[in-house]
Computed example of a mutant assay.
Amino acid sequence: MINGNESVTRSIGGNKGDMNMMYTKLRLTIKDVCHMLSVERDKLNKLVKTDPSFPRPIKEGASRQAAVYFDYNELVNWWEDQKQARYS
Rank of each mutant, 00 (worst) to 15 (best):
Y23F: 15
G61E: 06
K16F: 15
V48D: 01
M1H: 07
K16S: 12
D18H: 11
R56V: 14
A62K: 13
N5V: 10
K59G: 04
A66F: 03
K59M: 12
F54Y: 03
W78D: 02
N20K: 14
M19H: 08
I58V: 15
G4F: 06
R41Y: 10
P57K: 05
C34W: 02
Q65N: 15
Y69N: 03
K25C: 06
D71Y: 03
K83P: 00
S53Y: 06
N15Q: 12
E74N: 09
R10C: 09
D18G: 03
R56S: 15
N20F: 06
G61Y: 04
Q84V: 08
N45Y: 13
Y87N: 11
R86N: 09
K59Q: 15
K83I: 13
T29C: 05
V39L: 09
M21R: 07
K46F: 09
Y23V: 10
L28S: 00
D51H: 02
M21T: 05
I58E: 15
K16T: 10
F54N: 06
G14W: 09
N45P: 00
L37N: 02
D71T: 03
M22F: 12
R10P: 00
Q82E: 07
N3Y: 11
N77K: 14
N5F: 01
N45I: 03
K43P: 00
W79F: 14
M19V: 11
L26V: 00
D81K: 14
K25N: 04
M36C: 10
D81F: 07
I2A: 12
M21Q: 13
W78N: 03
D18A: 10
I58C: 09
Y69F: 15
L47H: 02
M1D: 06
E80C: 06
T24I: 08
S53C: 08
M22G: 01
I12E: 08
T9Y: 12
D42P: 01
W78P: 01
P55E: 03
M1K: 04
Q65Y: 11
Q82R: 14
W79H: 14
K43V: 11
W79Y: 14
E80I: 12
V39H: 00
T50I: 05
D71G: 06
T9N: 11
N45F: 09
L37W: 01
L26G: 04
M19C: 14
M22D: 08
V33A: 05
S7K: 14
N20Q: 15
V8W: 03
H35I: 14
K49L: 13
E6N: 09
R27I: 08
Y69S: 02
P55R: 04
L44H: 01
W79I: 05
D71P: 02
K59C: 09
W78K: 04
V76P: 01
K16E: 13
S7E: 07
W78T: 01
